[in-house]
Simulated scan of single mutants.
Amino acid sequence: MDKSSNRKQDIQEMRHLFVILSRQFGILQKESSQCCGVTTVQSHILYEIKHGYHMTLNELAQRLCLDNSTTSRHVHGLVEKEYVVRLPHPEDRRYVTLELSEKGKVLEEEITEMMTTSIMDMFKQLPENRMTSMSTEIKELTEIMRKSDMCCNPPF
C-alpha cells in the first residue's frame, strides 16, 4: 500500500472517530440542556452570550454558524422564558445587544456544572499528564479546523 492510500485510510478512520465523538458529546449536551428546559442550540446561545460581552444577534449567529433568522427564533424563545434580555443601545436604538438575565445566568451555570461533572467523570481514568496533552491536541485540532476553508469559522 502506498503513502497516499495509508493517508486516505487514516483520514477515513479520523472521520469515523469525529462522527462518534460528535454524536456522543452531542448526546451529553442534549441531556444537560433538556433537563433544564432548553434545547441544545439554546444552551449554546446561553454559553456564547455569557462569554461574549454585549453580543449582537449577528455576532451570535456568526459564532454559532447559524443564519440570523434561526438564531433570532432561538433567542426569542429564551427571551420569552426570561433567560435573555435584549438591550437597545442608548444612542442608536436599532443596535441591540444580548445579555443573560439573572435567571439565565443561573440556568447557564446549571448546564455548565452538569457538563463539567460529566466531563470530569469521563476523564477520571486518565492520568493528569494525559489530560493536559489531550487538551493541547484538541486545541490544535480546533485551530486547524478554524483555518480550513471547508469548516465553519466562528471567531475565537
Rank of each mutant, 00 (worst) to 15 (best):
M1P: 08
D2M: 01
D2N: 15
K3H: 10
S5V: 09
S5W: 01
N6M: 12
D10Q: 15
I11K: 09
I11A: 10
Q12S: 08
E13H: 10
R15L: 13
R15I: 10
F18A: 02
V19N: 05
V19P: 00
I20N: 03
S22R: 13
R23W: 09
R23T: 09
Q24V: 10
Q24P: 00
F25G: 03
I27K: 13
I27F: 08
K30C: 13
K30R: 12
E31D: 14
S32N: 08
S33N: 03
Q34S: 12
C35W: 11
C36L: 05
G37Q: 04
G37M: 04
V38G: 03
V38Q: 01
T39W: 00
T40Y: 03
T40M: 10
H44M: 12
L46P: 04
Y47F: 12
Y47V: 02
Y47Q: 08
Y47E: 13
K50S: 14
H51E: 10
H51Y: 12
H51L: 09
G52I: 01
G52R: 14
Y53S: 11
T56S: 09
L57W: 03
L57R: 07
L57S: 00
L57V: 04
N58M: 11
A61P: 00
Q62L: 07
R63W: 00
C65P: 04
D67A: 05
N68Q: 14
N68D: 15
N68K: 15
S69I: 05
S69N: 13
S72T: 05
S72V: 06
S72L: 08
R73S: 13
V75M: 05
G77L: 14
G77Y: 11
L78H: 04
E82T: 07
Y83V: 01
V85C: 07
V85Y: 06
R86D: 04
L87F: 07
L87Q: 09
P88E: 09
H89N: 15
P90I: 02
E91P: 00
R93G: 03
R94M: 13
R94S: 14
V96W: 01
L98F: 06
L98E: 06
E99P: 01
L100N: 02
L100M: 01
L100E: 09
S101I: 01
E102P: 08
E102K: 15
K103N: 12
V106F: 11
E108M: 10
E108D: 13
E109P: 05
E110N: 14
I111N: 06
T112P: 01
T112A: 10
T112D: 12
T112Q: 11
E113A: 14
E113L: 13
M114R: 15
T117F: 11
I119F: 07
M120I: 02
D121T: 10
M122F: 08
M122V: 04
F123S: 09
Q125K: 07
P127Q: 04
E128L: 02
T132H: 04
T132K: 15
S133I: 08
S133N: 12
M134T: 06
S135V: 03
T136A: 12
I138K: 01
L141H: 10
L141D: 02
I144L: 13
I144M: 14
M145R: 11
M145L: 14
M145D: 06
R146F: 06
R146K: 15
R146T: 07
R146N: 08
S148Q: 03
P154Y: 01
F156Q: 12
F156Y: 08
